[in-house]
Simulated scan of single mutants.
Amino acid sequence: MKTLLLIGMGAGDPEHITVQAINGLNRVDVFFVLDKGQATDDLVRLRLEICERYIREPRYRVVQVSDPKRDSATTSYTQGVEHWHEQRALLFARLIDNELADGECGAFLLWGEPGLYDSTLRILDRVRANGCTDFDYQVIPGISSVQALAARHRIPLNDIGQPIRITTGRRLTAQDLDNVVVMLDAHCAFEAFVDENVDIYWGAYIGTANEILIAGKLSEVCEQIKGARSAARARMGWVMDTYLLRRRAD
């Protein structure tokens, strides 16, 4: 039987790796790395750095392949993601068939936490549904950008006895502004709420050498965040940010 490990690699700091993840890394024969292009070379390098840092007997090999591109021009976001997942499922099935021998262990090092806004689990379910069943897989949880954001700003995510909500920039509404964590916000959705009485705790590249942290009343720091985000994109070619919005008591 072939085995796959989905290993949460944390939010950017190599020391986010858990002991369970280190033990998993040392079981792996083949690491699968999805190359998203030059803009995300840093993410590929971090994966390789983690392997070099924590694997005691480096007998593994790395298989790096181009990640299928999601069609952002499609009129339906859901249909675009559906097609992208299908293309990824076909790629994963080929990798399992061609690059992993029976009895070997393969792995994907996944940014943050595999169970939080990551598509890999759904795609592996699709691979199985398409008939590729000669493998098993395990999930090793990681530190998410949500946890890292709270730690770096030194804040609890919730008020006493209150819930929190985690959503995307695409789904953010005015009804969500009590303790809402926002991920995958490509268009600064928070800007629509500058007239609301809310604080924002924002972070980009959390846990890396390029980390940026900004906090304050949204109306006062909105432009600062947008400027920092624009400058970071120009420098890095990509932006990975997370933020918490919380209504102010005054």
Rank of each mutant, 00 (worst) to 15 (best):
L95H: 08
I96H: 01
I96C: 02
I96V: 09
D97M: 07
N98S: 13
E99R: 00
L100G: 04
L100Q: 00
A101L: 11
G103H: 01
E104A: 04
E104C: 04
C105D: 08
C105P: 13
C105V: 15
G112V: 01
G112C: 03
G112D: 06
E113S: 05
E113L: 00
P114C: 01
L116K: 02
L116N: 02
T120N: 09
R122C: 07
I123F: 00
L124N: 06
L124H: 05
D125C: 04
R126E: 11
V127A: 04
R128P: 00
A129W: 03
N130A: 09
N130D: 14
G131M: 01
C132S: 10
C132E: 10
T133C: 14
T133D: 12
T133W: 02
D134V: 10
F135Y: 09
D136M: 07
D136S: 12
Y137R: 00
Y137K: 01
Y137S: 01
V139R: 01
I140Y: 03
P141W: 13
S144E: 05
S144F: 03
S145W: 05
V146E: 00
A148T: 15
A150N: 02
R152P: 05
H153V: 10
R154N: 14
R154V: 14
L157S: 04
L157N: 05
L157Q: 03
L157K: 05
G161H: 03
G161T: 00
Q162L: 10
Q162I: 07
P163G: 09
P163Q: 09
I164C: 11
R165H: 14
R165Q: 14
R165V: 15
I166P: 00
I166D: 05
I166L: 08
T167S: 09
T167R: 09
G169K: 06
G169Q: 07
R170I: 00
R170E: 08
R171T: 13
L172R: 11
L172E: 06
L172C: 03
T173G: 12
A174K: 12
A174D: 12
A174W: 04
A174S: 15
Q175N: 14
D176Y: 12
L177G: 01
L177V: 09
D178A: 13
D178W: 10
V180T: 14
V182S: 03
L184Q: 15
L184A: 06
L184I: 11
L184T: 08
D185C: 09
D185Y: 12
D185V: 12
A186E: 15
C188V: 14
A189E: 12
A189Q: 10
A189K: 10
F190A: 03
A192R: 15
F193Q: 11
F193T: 11
F193D: 10
V194M: 12
V194F: 11
V194W: 10
D195I: 08
E196Q: 15
N197K: 06
N197C: 10
N197I: 06
V198H: 04
V198R: 06
V198E: 04
